[in-house]
Design a protein around this nucleic acid. Structure first.
Lengths: 240, 240
DNA sequence: TTCGTTTGTTGATGCAGATCAAGGAACGCG
DNA sequence: CGCGTTCCTTGATCTGCATCAACAAACGAA
């Protein structure tokens, strides 16, 4: 998990090249992007954007995990989205975001200045189209999360969360078992799935006791029985 | 609330003309739309689209209320979106939806055949842009709903729900008090805000007892004290 | 109008998960 | 290596909402 240096990276060598907003750009468009981009890293815990702050940049997340969160009057918070590599932060035409964006782990962004980026969007239809796809993917994910938050039990929530990490392939393979890196603390997980940190801890250990997962260190989960895990999500089978 | 006849309506007379996907269309584009559109109505309770069904049409919702819902293995359901007049159903490039779309009240759609509509989107950038805006608005709404589902109490959920109906102006004015038409039953409301119908009923009556709202008939709420209602949502003041 | 069906209210009880509390393990830093 | 801090676990208790149950009100059809 060493942080490679991105500073002088060419777009053609970019690890998220094929999935990010630039996925279908040709060489010409890439060089336009090269000219307006700059890499910036944030340490874990740093605020990347404040809610309401005008955005001079939009960005692709290149490495690490960031979270979008909203806060109620009395301080209760809810994480409303996880940004993983290739996700896009900020939208053309929108000057600010309505949530805080925080670096959950160390994060590297590929930032584009807003104005030139918006010009690029205006005259390259497939970039606009790719942005639309990314937005619709986020909308789908948000709707699945609404089911989780509104209707799932604590156990189902935990299973769904782990399964999501598997799906979005935050995984290594260690021998023949799947190993998932947890990008966040129990408290942050709790905020994401609408529980308290104590309940998160209890459910993790209960799944461990049943042999569905193994816990090694604070930030690693081994998937011992993927079928059982998916069974435990409560989702309709064909959704998985 | 009489259903006017839409069958022969011209786009220029359309009640959602200024907010729907066609908001910024010029006369030429409108006449292209006239040629590919057809109105269709659904009775309350009818399924408009099934999850997984290939969509031959996309549509603007002209009148009534529809809901998007997802179902778990064992039958628990969660409404993941309310479609109100001017909302758009279906996306270019996406062949199916991942939820059921049901008419909550009697619903009228202005349907467009997919293929010609996609061609229109391809060669009119501001239609694509409007679709993007509509999608981002839905995404914002979905995120607010995640906070509601994950972190709000039953009372806050009910207050937020009523406040949303006020905001999206499903309101009449009756003398000097605001009257909100409830488009759905207690059971459907419960499914939308992640509660049971009994809890919904209790919270309505508790807000009534406190003089925040009045209930007249099954489907009408008077807003007696809007400030108290907003206070009860739990939202950060500047969000409202 | 009357009857049947759907929808809503209200009460009693139970339980999943929150809250409160204390200690233990992992990690970073001098 | 030891120490302080952060993060995690585990137990005890509490409570908000679900669940179960019965009835009442509204509505629609004949």
């Amino acid at each position: 998990m060493d942080q490679p240096s991105f500073v002088n990276m060419r777009c053609t060598e970019c690890p998220i090249r094929h999935r990010a907003v630039c996925a279908r750009c040709d060489d010409d468009e890439l060089s336009r992007l090269e000219n307006m981009k700059s890499y910036k890293t944030f340490d874990a815990g740093e605020i990347i954007f404040w809610r309401g702050q005008p955005l001079d940049y939009v960005a692709s997340l290149v490495d690490g995990v960031a979270s979008l969160s909203k806060t109620l009057e009395d301080g209760r918070t809810q994480i409303v989205g996880l940004m993983l590599p290739s996700d896009f932060i900020g939208r053309p035409g929108r000057v600010e975001v309505d949530f805080d964006v925080t670096a959950t782990t160390k994060v590297t962004l590929c930032r584009f200045e807003r104005k030139p980026f918006e010009r690029l969007v205006d005259d390259t239809p497939h970039v606009a189209q790719r942005l639309m796809e990314l937005a619709l993917d986020e909308l789908d994910a948000a709707r699945d999360w609404m089911v989780l938050l509104g209707r799932k039990t604590a156990r189902e929530k935990i299973a769904t969360f782990i399964n999501m990490l598997v799906q979005r392939s935050l995984t290594d393979t260690n021998g023949n078992t799947l190993v998932v890196d947890l990008p966040m603390t129990r408290d942050q997980i709790a905020n994401y799935i609408g529980l308290t940190l104590e309940t998160v801890s209890r459910q993790f250990n209960s799944l461990k006791k049943e042999g569905v997962i193994g816990l090694s260190g604070r930030k690693q989960i081994e998937i011992m029985d993927l079928d059982a895990l998916r069974e435990a999500t409560g989702d309709d089978a064909i959704l998985i």
